[in-house]
Amino acid sequence: MTESKGDQVSHTQPAVDTVTAPPVWEPLIVAFLCNWCSYAGADLAGSSRLTYPPNVRVVRVPCSGRVNPLFIMSCFKKGYDGVLVAGCHPGDCHYVKGNYFARRRMPLAQELLQYLGLEPERIRFDWVSAAESGRFAQVVQSLTEQVRALGPYVVNKRDA
């Protein structure tokens, strides 16, 4: 296993006895990234060879305003551990106002989910511009650590 200098999370798995030991849990996080800013920022993080934990899976959307809060609910219903929605900074939206609607919807979604018992640290709504590669890496890093600390998300907690 190679470990690069920047990695703050160890990916080494202990030697696993496939019959008896279960695999180590890793958070699974979905990131909705807008094509013009946050997705481009993530691309730049790649070009710049920054490192961050491999726990995020990206869903590209044209605009953060495309993200229906029901997607987030759907994510948790399916059992994901965390969700990131990242858009352009206010005023910079490629489509002028889409991120303003996201700005209104996401906090509402967070509050509603919190009311339903979801830990608010599992959802992150943030702005990442196309130039902010470092910020993207840092957002992914901190969200992954937060979610890791919370443990796996258990759907229907009363059954757990």
Partner: peptide, 8 residues
């Protein structure tokens, strides 16, 4: 380009 561990 952003991860180093081959498995993950």
């Amino acid at each position: 380009w952003v991860h180093s561990d081959r498995t993950s």
